[in-house]
């Protein structure tokens, strides 16, 4: 594990170059340019507002604006997660030429896919921050915890990305399975609603590590509160474990890539 991280560190320039390549290609070809980064979150937020409105009509209450802001805040990490997984699943198979012809630590490929999506999230975070300032969402000291949660989210995503990209190399239909799970995953994750609306069943929502991360981010950004320490710990543990497992398994089967791709 440490040796693997060391090697990736040695090839860090390659990691940046590949990330840069992915970003360049995505923005070069898309006419919308940087709008691309906020397009998907925007659509997701609109969908969330629609659902919120439907629920408000059903229980005959006015739509609450804090809820809408919560959706906007939670949609960003969620879209980062699904696009990062989507790109990293394809990263090894899509770079077949590199995998079969040149040596370098292969983990760089899925990791750069995750980093390129992180760049997208960075752009939409900037846009959202401006919006939140316009809507005067207060600042709290708990905001300082935000980087910790984003870091945990990156670790979890990277670990899962490593795992799925290598699995997809051996079984090409993994990407379809992943695609389906990602498509409906939003219903199993507290993005459009909060876990607390499930009452004592909130455990089901929070058991999903992404769910507990999203809830914690919601707590510190929108409500300015300390997140629940138990679920904080749970999210941290699962993210670290995921990253560790992803790295170790990836490293173990890396020698088989060139022959099986």
């Amino acid at each position: 594990m440490i040796q693997m991280l060391k090697e990736i560190f040695e090839y860090r320039d390659l990691l940046w170059m590949l990330t840069f390549r992915d970003i360049r290609i995505r923005y070069k070809q898309a006419a919308m340019g940087f709008l691309w980064a906020i397009f998907m979150p925007l659509v997701a937020v609109l969908a969330g507002i629609l659902i919120k409105k439907v629920m408000a009509v059903m229980i005959q209450e006015a739509i609450d604006y804090k809820g809408i802001i919560s959706i906007s805040v939670k949609v960003l990490p969620w879209t980062f997660f699904i696009s990062a997984i989507r790109f990293s699943v394809q990263s090894l198979v899509g770079n077949r030429d590199l995998v079969t012809k040149i040596y370098f630590p292969r983990a760089v490929l899925p990791l750069s896919a995750v980093l390129a999506c992180l760049f997208d999230m960075g752009i939409s975070i900037i846009v959202l921050t401006i919006l939140l300032m316009v809507f005067k969402i207060g600042f709290s000291f708990y905001l300082l915890l935000l980087p910790v949660f984003i870091f945990l989210l990156i670790l979890f995503t990277a670990g899962l990305g490593l795992l799925l990209s290598s699995a997809n190399l051996f079984y090409r239909d993994i990407k379809y399975v992943v695609e389906i799970i990602l498509m409906f995953g939003i219903f199993f994750t507290p993005v459009f609603y909060s876990a607390s609306s499930f009452g004592r069943w909130d455990v089901i929502m929070l058991f999903n590590p992404i769910g507990s991360l999203l809830e914690a981010i919601d707590q510190i950004v929108v409500f300015g509160k300390m997140p629940d320490p138990f679920w904080f710990g749970y999210a941290a543990l699962t993210s670290l474990a995921m990253f560790y497992i992803g790295m170790v398994i990836f490293h173990k089967i890396e020698p088989l890539f060139a022959e099986n791709i």
Binding site: M17, R21, I25, L98, I102
Partner: peptide, 24 residues
């Protein structure tokens, strides 16, 4: 093998150089 058709020659030199294990 490391070339990407969409990138310019300059970008590809850097990309390929780092793929081959060079520092930037």
């Amino acid at each position: 093998a490391g070339f990407h058709p969409e990138l310019t020659g300059r970008e590809n030199v850097y990309l390929n150089g780092t793929i081959l294990g060079m520092r930037k």
